[in-house]
Design a protein around this nucleic acid. Structure first.
Lengths: 230, 230
DNA sequence: GGGGCTATTATGTACAGACATATTACGATC
DNA sequence: GATCGTAATATGTCTGTACATAATAGCCCC
């Protein structure tokens, strides 16, 4: 057998041994030092390969205890969440949007709770319809913390809130939830579908440095699919 | 300013500079060598930090061209897809399942196409109802390539197909799609809901070494939410 | 036997030096 | 001016060594 060369080759070889059950789920595999000797490379190279597999969820590593094959191999999928405009344009369609509503209002308690702010704090409430090739694509309902806006507020008719935030309050943290719901009356009318139709909903909440930024709810047109690869 | 120590500190410092727009989106940041000198550490340490940020989608790196702040920072979320039993038990509920149907049949053309096999090849068709604390949780409709089964086929009444596959044909590749659909008659009856209700659907197709393994369609009970964090 | 200290061990991280590789910039040539 | 070849450069990777850190195993003592 020719020794694997390069950390990717080592990763492949380790994966192969796991697949053919040379190393069974739950079992401890040889130490980095041993593998480095077997493969004739530096320990750092083995470390790179094993760290990568650990991040992928295939291996579990603990100091002193060693490295073992994951027992319940959670499939870890990564999904890229693009800016809406980029998502539409990636399909070769033209993107446009219309702001349906833009007011300052008190958020409903669940939204305030999700953002971790007092329910009495007024937020910007913005309802936007996004179009792909002129046809409804999704409705974006956003609650925005006005504290992040500069004094002369930007013109959200020219640039979507989403893009403005990405350009000006970048690299936030947050969480996302996906669900299926029946379309409400407002969303249905905006999307041109029947109320009660099954729609794919994305709920996103973002902070930066612990300060709440925005809570968004995207209601996609029926037929939307969120894709990912293992 | 105290120099950051450790690759995570360097990553944090780089992120900070991006956040405060010290380095604007699209701009090229200093080379690894320069940063290593500034931070008083080895280039490998800077490399580790920058590689991590690149994987997170914050930076874009190209040889010779240097490292630049991502212009369209795709949010890259990772979601863990557990075995159904583990998912139910993680909620502190008891998992059980009932096989509603188990036959050998020809797959409908879309399924055959997704798996990349001839439509005339018969597959195992298995319909399973999963319960959480005795209440319907999801319906699993699976088309399984019989070629992966051992000669005395395992008893899928004792162990779910899902778990058997994980234990015996581990570490496959595949792809996943999520969507919202109206519940069909069969699923609705199994889940005890109204036909036409909005349900969250997961479609998964898996291969190993180019050989198709299985195509699964999970129809979740209304109210199900798929969670992730940025 | 139980409790707590210590030695051992595997991973985590860091370093300096080296070579590989992709890509750009530049200069020579036609 | 266009094209091709070459040099320069930033990242990608590997090596060998070193020390840090966490967690286990074993030991001693009570």
């Amino acid at each position: 057998m020719t020794a694997p060369v390069g950390w990717e080759a080592i990763r492949a070889e380790v994966l192969r041994r796991i697949r053919v059950r040379d190393w069974a789920p739950g079992a401890v595999i040889p130490s980095e030092t041993d593998l480095a000797q077997e493969f004739g490379c530096a320990r750092a190279t083995v470390n790179r390969a094993l760290r990568d597999l650990a991040q992928a969820g295939v291996l579990e590593r603990r100091r002193r205890a060693g490295t073992r094959v994951a027992l319940h191999p959670v499939r870890r999928a990564t999904l890229d969440i693009p800016v809406i405009r980029a998502e539409v344009e990636a399909r070769g369609q033209a993107h446009a949007f219309r702001v349906l509503k833009h007011v300052t209002a008190l958020p409903p308690p669940p939204v305030a709770a999700r953002l971790g702010i007092a329910p009495a704090a007024p937020l910007r409430h913005i309802l936007t319809l996004h179009l792909a090739d002129g046809r409804p694509f999704l409705v974006e309902e956003r609650w925005l913390n006005p504290a992040v806006l500069p004094d002369p507020a930007p013109d959200f008719a020219a640039m979507s809130v989403n893009e403005w935030l990405v350009m000006n309050v970048p690299y936030t943290s947050g969480d996302i939830a996906f669900s299926a719901e029946a379309a409400g009356a407002v969303e249905a009318r905006a999307l041109g579908i029947d109320a009660g139709a099954a729609v794919f909903v994305t709920d996103r909440t973002t902070w930066t440095d612990g300060m709440p930024i925005t809570a968004v709810r995207l209601v996609h047109v029926p037929g939307y699919r969120l894709h990912t690869s293992l």
